[in-house]
Amino acid sequence: MTTIIQWCEYLGGVTDTPPRGFPMHITWLLFGFWWTLLTALIAMFCGQSSKFIYIDF
């Protein structure tokens, strides 16, 4: 579980320290493709966006 959390947090931009086993030498390549994938998902799902639940409070 700890390993999964570390991977999620690094890929999510939460932590600065990569998890053990992360291929540091090609970070630039991986994150380039990661950004593309995230952008594609945003473009695909943003059509029915609703307001943030907490926003009026």
């Binding site: 931009g13 950004w35 995230l38 998902l41 945003i42």
Partner: peptide
């Protein structure tokens, strides 16, 4: 920062 924003939006 960009990674975090993109992940938040997803």
């Amino acid at each position: 920062g960009t990674t975090r924003i993109l992940c938040g939006l997803v």
